[in-house]
Amino acid sequence: MLLIPCPHCGPRAQTEFSYGGDANVARPPAPEDADGGTWVDYLYLRDNAKGGHDELWQHIFGCRRWLRVGRDVVSHEITSCTELAESGA
């Protein structure tokens, strides 16, 4: 079971978290101005890298913060877990 080092609560079991997928998906800042392709890409396209993956997890049974986790999706090794603001996202 993944052990996610929450910056607020310390290392906690994966079962306390809820997954949020690719952290590099950026919602168009002005959706109404976005063309159809841009909007649909935002809705449906994800990085699905086989290797390092930036992803969102929410610590729902903890601080309830959405966190940015760096994880290798082959080895499942977690390399980072930060507040979104800290990671500059």
Binding site: S18, G20, Q58, W66, L84, A85
Partner: peptide
Amino acid sequence: MAHLEYYLQVVWP
């Protein structure tokens, strides 16, 4: 709740 938190924390911090 998670939806609101997502938009607050991720999209419109």
